[in-house]
Design a protein around this nucleic acid. Sequence first.
DNA 1: CCAATTGTTATTTA
DNA 2: ATAAATAACAATTG
Length: 274
Amino acid sequence: MPELAEVEFFRRRWSAGHGARVLAVHAHDRARVFRECDVARLKKKLTGARLLGSATTAKQMLFRFSSGRWLGVHLGMSGELRVEPSDYAPAKHDHLILVQRQRQLVFNDPRMFGGVLFSTGRTAPDWWTRIAPAILSDQFTGKAVADFLRRRARAPIKAVLLMQERFPGIGNWMADEILWRAAIHPARPAGSLTPTEVRTLHHECRMVCRLALRTIAGVGGRLPPNLNVRIPKTWLFWHRWEDGGRCPRTRVPLARATIGGRTTCWSPARQKLR
DNA sequence: CCAATTGTTATTTA
DNA sequence: ATAAATAACAATTG
């Protein structure tokens, strides 16, 4: 499920535990989510540490603990973070649980495409600082997008939008939402976009990120009761999976096909090949 | 049983 | 050599 704003939504759940100590750590070290992580060391170093703060960039989350301990979480395709009461008993696919006095912080991921990283150090780990500059940062410029599209000229634009090294945090549904708003057909080769289309694409990338954060993640306010509840019905989002779904702007039936290896949804009336 | 899934990476193909 | 396409990873649901 989780793309940019959903990742932020889940991170904020765990901020209930900011300031509190970790009394115990439960982890199944055989689970695939720990494939790049020394679980014994994680348990040892995190037990007794205090959760001081956290951040999201792209689809990555970083949790900062006392004495220079850092926990990274990626949710993969099916991961989520939850907060459970102290008497909660671990359920299936709960791979990592940080037990605090008042609550338990749970990482659950059935498909285990997600992953956990642990490291120590005075500053944030390398893998975190190496993540591409956020789409909502000043470094995400129109020129950067244009240059990138030129280097990926033959790939379908849909596939290019999924490349995290330039569009960090964009996933399948956000890519479709951006192209739909920009009125660009997902199968167009990236190099075939006109300068105007590239400018529009750049703008809509920022727009969709900003709106998704505001609605899903509840930035600037409290968390919404569930993930998608505030996404307006005017977005492609609500119609992309349903059979007989129609474009919310033109009312024309939506098209669906595999493009760039992913199920892609678009409005033939707005988004034309040429 | 078959197909589907909002992510990423390794491998193969062009 | 590089970019693009495909397979693989795992679990569940329809």
